[in-house]
Amino acid sequence: MEQLLDDVLEMYGYDFSDYTKASMHRRISRLMVLDRFPSFAEFRYKLRTNEDYLKRFVEEVTVNVTEMFRDPAFYATLREQILPAIASKPFIRIWHAGCSTGEEVYSTAILLKEANLLHKSLIYATDINPEVIKKAKDGILPLGYMKDYSENYIASGGKEDFSKYYTAKYDRVKINESLLERVIYSTHNLVSDSSFNEFQLIMCRNVLIYFNKDLQNKVLTLFDGSLENLGYIALGSKETLKFSAISGRYKQVGKDKIWKKQKEA
């Protein structure tokens, strides 16, 4: 597996060597089965000789599972504590790093809209995988998911009629354009790309679980350098900033996986 990841780095510049071994191993085995490779050697050969296949590799080894208002309690805290704390800023910048197909971005946009902050906000939505960024931009979701998402929305403290945020057509829905006007989408690789702005809130949920500790530290340091004083970093429900290189300057907000950057001493 190490050889394969070396190939991918050398030939295409994607560095997966600091992803957790167990997960990478699973994703690669799964892809080999899906695409019916009889041996690892043939898989490696295909990847070395076929640039189009690299695209598929990147799409499939990354895990893109996501939901709207995933972990409703997290969004309740965002709504009740975090957004009010940054509301007085003349201009709000939020970064969703590893935004996958955009469900998280739509959720944040809804919260901003309801807090009457969306017009003065910009949401930067980035991911390593160009395919999910394309989908996030389209804002089209299967109608069948809406029941769960609407329940999540209500559990997170949403009071509006959730269905007003999209229009349904056949078995799909389209998220309202007006919610997505303030979103900027781009590919961005947390492993190799640098900081591109200063934010009040950086959300990177369920991405660090795929990275080893060294890479986690590197990425958290990148976030630290992209965050204003008194800004917030939000992680996934099983992730922590606790033992990381930047933990000294951060204080956890309640029990949620949200940390606030403290003023310089």
Binding site: T20, K21, S23, R27, V63, I209, K238
Partner: peptide, 21 residues
């Protein structure tokens, strides 16, 4: 093991979580 994540094991005897399908 927490709900909603797959539980994986590393050779250094640590846990990894994975929220894939």
């Amino acid at each position: 093991a927490p709900g909603d994540y797959h539980l994986l094991f590393e050779k250094d005897h640590s846990f990894s979580l994975d929220d894939s399908e």
